[in-house]
């Protein structure tokens, strides 16, 4: 009896792990797409509304779905602090750092966002637009890659979890 319960537990846990990994594969392209649409909204705010970053960020935080809205919310809060040392760049970096853990996003896109943040608010709108376009292009490439990885590995990770559990159980029986 105990054996069966143990076996079930092992299978359940490895399946869970497999599900978790496969979720990472399916979440990443989704979040990348959201990130791109966020940057597109930012572009619209900058180009047509000439909205300051702070206001744009608080507006975006209301529009976007959950993990991403946290980033812009944090950014808006940091920028409205009346402190001496706050710069857009430092606030961007800190918010990015804090929010990154809650996403399925990876190092490549983090690098892209860092680089984009370094130029934000430093140029006229024409140049801002170019920078946003550049970041968008990079993100699109990452998204395609993520999609490929998703189609390749998502199902595999799931079944691998279950099969690994079965294997362990069979070995231990």
């Amino acid at each position: 009896m105990i054996k069966i319960i143990g076996a079930c537990m092992i299978i359940a846990s490895t399946t869970g792990a497999g599900m978790f990994i496969s979720r990472q594969f399916s979440e990443r392209p989704k979040q990348l797409r959201q990130l791109r649409s966020a940057l597109q909204s930012l572009e619209a705010e900058i180009m047509y509304g000439l909205t300051p970053v702070k206001e744009a960020a608080s507006r975006l935080s209301g529009q976007l779905p959950k993990p991403l809205s946290l980033f812009f919310e944090k950014l808006a809060v940091k920028l409205s602090e009346e402190e001496e040392a706050v710069t857009l760049q430092s606030a961007w970096k800190e918010s990015l750092e804090a929010f990154w853990q809650q996403t399925a996003l990876q190092k490549n896109e983090k690098e892209i966002m860092y680089q984009f943040g370094a130029t934000l608010g430093k140029h006229d709108s024409e140049n801002e637009r170019k920078q946003i376009r550049l970041a968008l292009a990079h993100l699109e490439r990452e998204e395609n890659e993520a999609r490929n990885a998703q189609s390749k590995y998502e199902k595999m990770a799931k079944s691998l979890g279950l099969l690994a559990g079965l294997l362990i159980v069979l070995l231990l029986l």
């Binding site: 900058i46 000439l50 909205t51 300051p52 970053v53 702070k54 206001e55 920028l79 710069t87 857009l88 608010g121 430093k122 140029h123 006229d124 709108s125 801002e128």
Partner: peptide, 15 residues
């Protein structure tokens, strides 16, 4: 710093 604050960190608003 002063220009950052004048523009609210968004130089494009001051074009």
């Amino acid at each position: 710093e002063l220009i950052d604050r004048l523009s609210e960190f968004s130089l494009y608003t001051l074009e």
